[in-house]
Design a protein around this nucleic acid. Structure first.
Lengths: 150, 150
DNA sequence: GCTTCGCACGCAATATCCTTGCGAGATTGG
DNA sequence: CCAATCTCGCAAGGATATTGCGTGCGAAGC
């Protein structure tokens, strides 16, 4: 229901970078009164344009000393295999993101664990144990040189 | 400087999911008084454990109708090539994330654009134009089945 | 064992902020 | 041209953030 006008875009831009801005400061930045600004933000939240507010935590401080992007290929895309895989992924706390992508491998996971041993365990006992998983390729994260808001 | 005890972990857990929690409600959830809780949060911010607060915006509403994960391989890892590539990535607003990974391809990008035409343009005019880029593989995002906090 | 020091806590007070109701001006459609 | 609708700014009260202060607990040293 929001109008997607210049002010809304500015609100989104500011909140994407600084979600804990006070409403009055946000209002000043976008050139609105506090009440009008608040109502717009609430509209954006209700309509789902803003789906949530999240603190970004340093992975190391969060106990994630080993991060990898993992591509997974399924041998057969039967309904049972797909559901079993997605259920495993959803239940695994090590899997932080799961994307369905085109290409030779149909899934791209981001996995965060404490260290190499934990990854080995996850790899063999969790991922490889899912029926229909044909190929697992691990890409260890060396560095993140750009992130959405830095 | 934070102690990484049970209460800090609970604070981080709550703020990762609900960054706009009021401090008093956060204090109740973690079992602390408001002032003590606020001081811990400020410590976590100052020490860099919490690196920022961000609103999550629906990609479609944000104008990103086409999202892809793109792997890039460089022909030679000379200093000039690396720097040219990273400079291009840093300057390109379409690139939302850039990760340096192990494997046959050394970079994994997340690219968000309005549509296929815009992607084609980015692919040929921006990415392929960087000297030393040997291979570009595009994986179109079909769906994201799991994200850190859903 | 006792003392001292430092640290984190809770309480209280003030400044700031959020939130809602209300009336005015602008915009749209008939 | 008028009416309906929408969004705005203003104002008030209730909630919240933020700081100073005193207390208690645990660690280090004597």
């Amino acid at each position: 229901m929001p109008k997607n006008d210049e002010i809304d875009r500015r609100i989104l831009r500011e909140l994407q970078r600084h979600a804990r801005l006070t409403n009055v400061e946000l209002a000043e930045r976008v050139g609105l009164s506090a009440s009008a600004c608040l109502r717009r933000v609430q509209d954006l939240e209700r309509s789902g344009v803003i789906s949530g507010y999240h603190a970004r935590v340093d992975p190391l401080a969060g106990g994630a000393g080993f991060i990898a992007y993992v591509t997974v290929a399924l041998s057969s895309h039967t309904k049972e295999n797909l559901e079993a895989f997605e259920r495993t992924v959803a239940a695994a706390p090590q899997v932080v993101e799961c994307h369905n992508i085109t290409g030779a491998t149909s899934y791209l996971l981001r996995v965060e664990v404490a260290g190499l041993q934990q990854y080995k365990k996850f790899h063999t006992e969790t991922l490889a144990a899912v029926p229909g998983v044909a190929q697992i390729t691990t890409h260890v994260l060396l560095a993140t040189t750009k992130h959405r808001f830095d």
